[in-house]
Design a protein around this nucleic acid. Structure first.
Lengths: 158, 158
DNA sequence: TAACACCTTCAAGCCAACTTGAAGGTCAAG
DNA sequence: CTTGACCTTCAAGTTGGCTTGAAGGTGTTA
């Protein structure tokens, strides 16, 4: 009951089975123990790791970076000063990223404020500039995929 | 004197000339006016745009997204309600990203705190887990490229 | 025992965002 | 009037992160 086949973990973590195999191949996941028939057998823990991977990815981390963070977290007990250092570097990196994003946001908001305070916003003609963009933007679609939904991976469907 | 050739803008924005051509090709930059010989002629404005592109990219935006933001900012005068809406969506997206990153940071920091409070950090043996990682981490290298330095693009060198 | 949904490997294909290379035109300096 | 550093286009290659397909084994259910 704590044993899941690849399709099952994939579904629970909302990725495809192929992706899970790929993650193992590139070293993100530790190779799963196999059943007598050669089937990979996973536990809930793997589902957690997979979910973590997707979240970190959505935040812009590469699989390499995520792999390192996973290794740190797997080291779990006995985190020596090296591990600690590495982890602290990661946090510092994230902090830097947050600061930059915050500045970026201020920049954008600044432009908007400039515009907002100005003339009446009746658009005539030249607003075609964003015609294409609004197509996507007007029907609830993600014109800007701030949280990435990389072709969704409906896992084992079809 | 306000006229720059492609190598010049490239150098000033710290990208390669090929990248500038590529950006024009995919519609990120508006096609530059040509000299009689067919050379692209740019202004300082393009350098600014290129720098913006690199910054936005480092923050995890795709070229498509950046292209939209650039269009918004080029619309400059007469920003109709549509443009304004679009821009506000972008800000909202950035806000969301910042919130997620902040939570991520808290998670990482939490783990570190747990460890930090614990046993003595003398690492014996099993610390090999991070041997590979420390290789990169110990010599000032960017084990985690939080601000991306995508194969650098030393522009027109060599 | 046949169907069917799962699993396996391996190889190839795809998209974004570039980079690299070939083949050639332009132009100021020696 | 040639050298050398620029510029041009076009085509093909690269990397990361997958997806898709072929060819085949597994295991429950009718």
């Amino acid at each position: 009951m704590g044993e899941l086949l690849i399709g099952e973990v994939a579904k629970r973590a909302d990725v495809s089975a192929a992706t899970v195999r790929y993650y193992e191949e590139v070293g993100l996941l530790t190779p799963a123990p196999r059943s007598s028939a050669g089937y990979r057998r996973y536990t809930e823990g793997t589902v957690e790791e997979l979910r973590f991977v997707r979240k970190a990815q959505a935040l812009g981390f590469s699989l390499d970076e995520i792999g390192e963070i996973l290794k740190l977290s797997r080291a779990g007990r006995t985190p020596c000063s090296h591990v600690l250092d590495l982890a602290k570097r990661h946090v510092a990196g994230v902090d830097e990223r947050i600061r930059q994003l915050t500045r970026f946001r201020a920049h954008l908001a600044g432009e908007i404020a400039k515009w907002d305070g100005e003339r009446q916003p009746t658009c005539q003609g030249l607003c075609q500039i964003i015609a294409g963009a609004s197509d996507e933007a007007t029907d609830g679609a993600p014109m800007t995929s701030h949280i990435q939904q990389r072709r969704s991976a409906r896992s084992t469907r079809q």
